[in-house]
Design a binder for these strands. Structure first.
Lengths: 151, 151
DNA sequence: TTACTTCCTCTAGCAGCTATAGGTTCAAGG
DNA sequence: CCTTGAACCTATAGCTGCTAGAGGAAGTAA
């Protein structure tokens, strides 16, 4: 039986995050010691490692919730898990494409900035006028509205 | 003079977002009509277009705030604006590297999933065990902690 | 026993919006 | 002129995925 601190260091998940996962029902409520402290089994450790790894791969907590409920039921067909992973892959690919376009644009901005006063600064100029862009980088409608996500 | 709705459609920024930008001081307080409705000048339109475009390129609101105060003062040297753009470029490049690693991993997961029961599912299996990964994809420590950002 | 660390709960905060409620103003049609 | 309906107003709460802080209890080593 691990304390929450040990579980945290052994999985690389911070203690408040573990409590948060319990709170939102991603982890079951932990057993408690006589003094009301959480105690974790090997199974809980595995489940948290799964969650952490999926987070690293960019899965949302909602997707992870689905994956966990699938893995709790090993006789189900695999198609649903596969679909979640494929959706995640598509998401990553589209993000890659957009980021690549942004990189091109930023490189152009930085390279072209030859003046030494703000009034001649390409960075400011390009940001003020989308028509100066070479790529068709994303608009707020298709890039900036979804739930914020890292990586 | 534009109403907030016209300004929104002409810049591609949603109305509540414009009000939010005013609230946090990114846009100055708008003039009001007799009936207390916001009215915008061409200058405000330019400023919002600038913000929107910078957001598309992934700049944080804080960075945009800095860029705006620079552009308000055109005699200043350009170095600060250049530095912000370069930092943004570095950020985008590191994000690209991480996303590429994730893509590799996800592709492997999806391709290898040959079983048709969850119990044989590579997706679930790989997520449960980081050592099955071929790339050194990011950990939560270097990828998942910063301020959430899209694109 | 004392000191120190780790744990507990609870609440509030972060970015960057989005949504809802409950009301006012404006423009067009009859 | 009056009505309808869209667009506006303010204020507040919610979203994701945590993180930080307060104020206190429990566990551990010397």
């Amino acid at each position: 039986m691990l304390t929450i601190g040990k579980l945290g260091t052994s999985t690389g998940v911070k203690v408040p995050t573990i409590r948060y996962y319990e709170q939102i029902g991603l982890l079951p409520e932990a057993e408690r010691s006589a003094g009301n402290q959480r105690l974790y089994t090997h199974k809980a450790h595995e489940r948290l490692a799964f969650i952490r790894h999926a987070r690293e791969l960019g899965f949302s907590l909602e997707a992870i919730r689905d994956l966990l409920s699938l893995s709790d039921d090993p006789d189900q067909p695999c198609a649903a898990a596969d679909a979640i992973a494929k959706a995640q892959l598509a998401e990553v690919e589209s993000r890659l494409a957009r980021l690549t376009a942004l990189k091109t644009e930023l490189e152009r901005m930085v390279v072209q900035c030859a003046g030494d006063r703000i009034s001649d600064c390409r960075v400011i100029e390009v940001l003020g006028d989308h028509s100066l862009c070479v790529t068709n980088h994303p608009t707020m409608d298709d890039a900036g509205q979804g739930p914020a996500r890292d990586v």
